[in-house]
Simulated scan of single mutants.
Amino acid sequence: MTVCIEQSVHESEVVVETKNHCDTNELVLIGDVVVPDQTVVGGDFDQPEVNAFGQSFRDYDVENERQKQVEEFYRMNHIYQTYDYVKKMREEYKKLDKLEMSIWECCELLNEVVDESDPDLDEPQIEHLLQTAEAIRKDYPDEDWLHLTALIHDLGKVLLLPRFGELPQWAVVGDTHPLGCAFDDSIVHHKYFKENPDMNNPAYQTKNGIYTEGCGLENVMISWGHDDYMYLVAKENGSTLPEAGLFIIRYHSFYPLHRSGAYKHLMNEEDVKNLKWLQIFNKYDLYSKSKSRVDVEKVKPYYLSLINKYFPEKLRW
């Protein structure tokens, strides 16, 4: 006998509406993309208690050399990421005139990149990409777009390399936040915003700032970095990833939103739907970081097949 009911599942203060929740243990979201019930299917993910350094994840207060480096990163980030700076960077990098290459070629370039803002890992970035993708693939085997999204979500970090402009770390990595409105207290190392030139503009100091409530995140200027750049690359090159995948790429570092619930008043209905997917993705992005290595050659054929499905052979970067 099959029993179907309608119910709501509350996760991280976001309500996920379910329809015909039968013995398939699935949640159906708008857009005909099926999300498995995490309490059943996602239970295999073994969330570690400590990061690669033996400490709590995202602990920005512990005293060690790595944390001092991370704090200095955020000091620079909060001083120099201004509304005008982000506008300029978006206009410059939307040209996609640096070079042409495939997605996998870009993955291999990340062997040269280490994220100085990350308090949990100091391995080359390709390790993190594969760890995240493989963890999601295990728990959500039928959502191939989500596997690929995990693989490519950090590819924008190539902005650190000379051929992409060799931008400073504070302009590429780290948590992101809106410009043009008040800086929320939940932003990591919030104290350093006092030196940001935007603090001198009264129009930017209110909750809504220059925006209107419900305007949609696509209309909000978010601090510049690898998220926005990779979103531009995917969008402008005609990727067929679903909107939820593009949303994850663009806002996965927007921790004030998806971890603290800040700035929700700027979201529209489409953002609310896509945020559900981002919160599913986030635990794998954060907690799959470890010293465990993934056999690249073993998994490479699978990810190449997904790249061919959702992207052109060569992309403009």
Rank of each mutant, 00 (worst) to 15 (best):
I222H: 01
D175W: 09
A234F: 03
P162K: 02
P256Y: 06
M267C: 15
W170F: 04
P119T: 01
C107A: 04
L304P: 10
I30T: 14
N20Q: 15
P119F: 07
L121I: 11
I280L: 15
S290A: 05
E143N: 15
D118K: 07
D185L: 11
A203M: 10
A234P: 00
P197N: 08
L241W: 02
K19F: 14
S253E: 06
E6Y: 08
L27G: 08
R137L: 09
T212R: 12
F311Q: 04
F57H: 03
D84T: 10
Q81G: 05
I187K: 09
E6D: 15
S260N: 10
Q55H: 15
E112G: 01
S8T: 14
V40F: 14
L232A: 09
S8F: 09
S239L: 07
T176G: 00
G180V: 04
R90L: 08
M230Q: 10
Y303C: 01
Y80L: 03
V41L: 12
L161T: 00
L161Q: 00
P178D: 01
E243R: 15
L266K: 07
C181G: 07
C106L: 07
V220H: 04
E123M: 08
V16M: 13
H153D: 00
I187C: 08
N77C: 10
W145M: 05
A52W: 06
E270Y: 10
W317V: 02
Q205R: 15
G156F: 02
N237C: 00
T176E: 05
I136L: 06
T206Y: 07
A262T: 04
D185W: 13
F193W: 14
T206P: 09
L155M: 08
K235R: 10
Y302L: 04
Y255W: 08
D142Y: 06
V113K: 01
H147A: 03
I248V: 05
R316T: 03
L275M: 07
Q81M: 12
F247S: 04
L27S: 10
W170S: 05
D118M: 05
L257N: 04
W317D: 00
N268E: 08
S260C: 09
I187A: 08
E6C: 12
E143R: 14
H153A: 03
K98C: 06
E6N: 14
E243C: 09
V296A: 01
H153N: 01
Q47L: 09
P168L: 01
L99Q: 12
S288K: 02
P124Y: 10
D271G: 07
D97P: 02
S292M: 11
S102Q: 02
D154E: 13
M267K: 08
E13W: 09
A262I: 07
M199A: 12
R163G: 03
I103D: 00
M267T: 14
L129W: 07
V50L: 15
S253W: 00
K264I: 13
L27T: 12
G180E: 04
V172H: 04
I152C: 05
E236N: 14
S12Y: 15
I126H: 13
N208F: 12
P312C: 06
Q55V: 13
E72A: 11
H265D: 12
Q7C: 14
T24R: 13
Y302N: 05
L155D: 07
H189E: 14
L99P: 11
D184I: 10
G31F: 03
K87C: 13
E49P: 05
E269A: 14
R66H: 00
F254P: 00
C22G: 13
E112F: 05
